[in-house]
Design a binder for these strands. Structure first.
Length: 590
RNA sequence: CGGGGUGUAGCGCAGUUUGGCAGCGCGCUGCGUUCGGGACGCAGAGGUCGUGGGUUCAAAUCCCGCCACCCCGACCA
């Protein structure tokens, strides 16, 4: 394939577009790969569409290679299946819904679990048909409140979603592993850096779940890695290791103290350290010695709202994302002034364990951070304004109704997987997500098969996604440099960026011949045949556009050489004209 | 949804404070020069100043409403 820049539908921009902040967005627009067409919707120009199609091809090849079969659903879907799995309401405002002329409800598919489940139910009814792996590459719609960063988060985007159907848990494990392996191959081929992190299964329900994240500053997911072992997890999924219980024989009985004007942890710690009767003799009090009790409301899907208190060490904030992931699909709501007024037993700023718990008068469920183990001693609220209780010992003086992973995760926290490592934090772009759905959808939609004993069993499912359009941006994000884009070979819109510099007809003739010969070898060539464009412009464009190999036909021609450059390394070499085709082809087919 | 910012030619911006001919750079068209690192001269084309209303002799500029975009937060496979 030969693309001539003199006629290619392309305009590169000398300056950064004002509305683009992250590098991938900036460079894709500047390089003439995409243009914004709607809020959260982008048009692919010829070069961008070639990248997109290459990514799609790699994904399709790997899915086919693992034995998954491609199907294709409509994007416009009926309401009923989503009603039956509760997701019509669970997804809520995030789905685009519409009515036809008769007033019947439809949605634009945000994901297709229901449809796949029903399709399999429609055709299969025996364990002999399983396992079955189906996938599609489809445009998805989500009414994101805030699309951002070009292709990274759109309201219309393309996703490869696949689904596995198995008769038992062992089968699901095998299907999951097969997908995991295929994803590793896929992302390797795409030239993407990635880490595989433990994840929450989110809106899907189910159990085991991992995300493939591409490390990037502009990423929206925060994850942790261990400095010592191979543990990695989305912060939402981090499990805090519970320390061993402590002996508390020596701890004096709990005592309530007047601590006026101490509504915050800082003021409380400062006061405790400044008063001789409260000061510790071994060391200063720190925020970590206090137990902070945060009250929130949890809105359950049925419409019921529950008040919940969360006890965390006072040196840590409650991480709203982690909390939301824990209570999903219920929603976290703020506990407002009005709510405090309605619950006189909860004294703002001075809430303590004595008032909390399902069996206490307020009836507030009390969930504790895993660090609050038996024997830990705390300063915490005494449920009266201006009073705190000291030496309150967990297990002796109070117990919670359970534990919850809601406290923030911090750099340097101990690794939950090994003894010596600590956690470091980083940001990444979610490129793929695999998870074991289990039987939630099959049960809701009644997908069953007969097993070998002739008994009806509910099918167990897995669900596996790759953001295809997002990958365009993620690859740009993880491979660009100061000069511009820098595509991996497998996804680049062309193998070679061939430019003719100068004004001599002989240069253009030689370049045109070379272009034809490279195409005859099966390479895709982007040929800058523009006349009257200065060399500087052509070099800048070549660097911005980011083909992996750049060939310059110009002043070297009188000496019988052309210049071969590697876009990524910047390496240059002069190649004799009559050896150029072989040398360039070899460079493009390492 | 909350906070902040921005909408003027294809792109980047000035002009708005203090109402008075709609400007600059890049890009685009024509002619000429230049040709290995975003060249130059001359001559051009291109704008409902986001949008609807209001004030005024007169509105890009002042007032009110709306819309869109960007950033932070909330939300989110």
């Amino acid at each position: 394939m030969l693309l001539r820049m003199s006629s290619l539908f392309l305009r590169t921009l000398r300056e950064d577009p004002a509305d683009a902040e992250v590098p991938s967005h900036r460079l894709l627009v500047r390089g003439g790969y995409i243009r914004r067409a709607a809020p959260g919707g982008y048009t692919y120009l010829p070069l961008g569409w070639r990248v997109y199609r290459n990514i799609e091809r790699v994904i399709r090849e790997e899915m086919d290679a693992m034995g998954a079969q491609e199907v294709h659903f409509p994007a416009l879907l009926p309401r009923e299946p989503y009603e039956r799995t509760n997701r019509w309401t669970e997804y809520g405002d995030d789905i685009f819904t519409l009515k036809d002329r008769k007033g019947v409800d439809y949605l634009l598919g945000p994901t297709h679990e229901e449809m796949f489940t029903l399709l399999v139910k429609d055709l299969y009814s025996s364990y002999k048909d399983l396992p079955l792996w189906l996938y599609q590459i489809q445009t998805k719609f989500r009414d994101e409140t805030r699309p951002r960063a070009g292709l990274l988060r759109g309201r219309e985007f393309v996703m490869k979603d696949s689904y596995s159907f198995d008769v038992d848990d062992a089968g699901l494990d095998a299907s999951y592993s097969a997908h995991r392996a295929a994803y590793i191959k896929t992302f390797d081929r795409l030239g993407l850096d990635y880490v595989i992190v433990a994840a929450m299964s989110g809106a899907m329900g189910g159990s085991r779940s991992e995300e493939f994240l591409t490390p990037a500053e502009s990423g929206e997911d925060t994850y942790v890695r261990c400095t010592n072992c191979d543990y990695a997890a989305n912060t939402e999924a981090v499990r805090v290791p519970a320390p061993a219980s402590l002996a508390y024989d020596e701890v004096p009985a709990a005592h309530v103290e007047d601590t006026p004007d101490t509504p915050t942890i800082e003021t409380l710690v400062a006061l405790a350290n400044s008063r001789a009767d409260l000061r510790r003799n071994d060391r200063d009090w720190t925020a970590a010695d206090t137990l902070k009790n945060v009250v929130i409301k949890v809105a359950h899907p049925g419409g019921k709202t529950e008040v919940v208190a969360i006890g965390v060490p006072g040196d840590r904030e409650v991480d709203v994302k982690r909390l939301a992931a824990q209570v999903h699909p219920s929603l976290v709501e703020q506990f407002t002034e009005t709510d405090f007024a309605d619950n006189p037993g909860l004294v703002r700023g001075y809430i303590g364990p004595a008032a909390l718990g399902e069996r206490k008068p307020a009836g507030v469920r009390y969930l504790l951070d895993p660090r609050v183990v038996e024997g830990t001693r705390w300063i915490t609220g005494a449920n009266e304004a201006g009073r705190h209780v000291f030496d309150l010992v967990a297990g002796r003086d109070f117990v919670g109704d359970g534990t919850i992973e809601a406290a923030e995760v911090r750099e340097g926290d101990p690794c939950p997987n090994c003894d010596s490592g600590t956690l470091v934090m980083a940001r990444g772009i979610e490129m793929g997500h695999i998870f074991q759905l289990g039987r939630k959808f099959a049960e809701a939609l009644d997908l069953r098969v007969l097993d070998e004993n002739g008994k009806q069993v509910v099918v167990t499912m897995g669900s596996y996604g790759i953001g295809v359009s997002r990958a365009v941006a993620a690859i740009a994000e993880s491979t660009h440099d100061d000069l511009g884009l820098c595509w991996p070979r497998e996804v680049a819109p062309a193998d070679v960026h061939l430019m003719a510099t100068g004004k001599d007809d002989s240069v253009f003739a030689a370049a045109a011949t070379l272009a034809d010969e490279l195409v005859a070898r099966g390479l895709d060539v982007l040929y800058d045949d523009r006349r009257g464009v200065s060399p500087g412009v052509k070099f800048k464009d070549a660097e911005l556009l980011g083909m992996p190999t750049i060939v310059v036909v110009g002043k070297g021609l009188v000496d019988g050489v052309v210049e071969l450059r590697d876009r990524r390394s910047g390496d240059r070499e002069d190649v004799a004209v009559d050896a150029a085709v072989d040398r360039i082809t070899a460079a493009c087919r390492p």
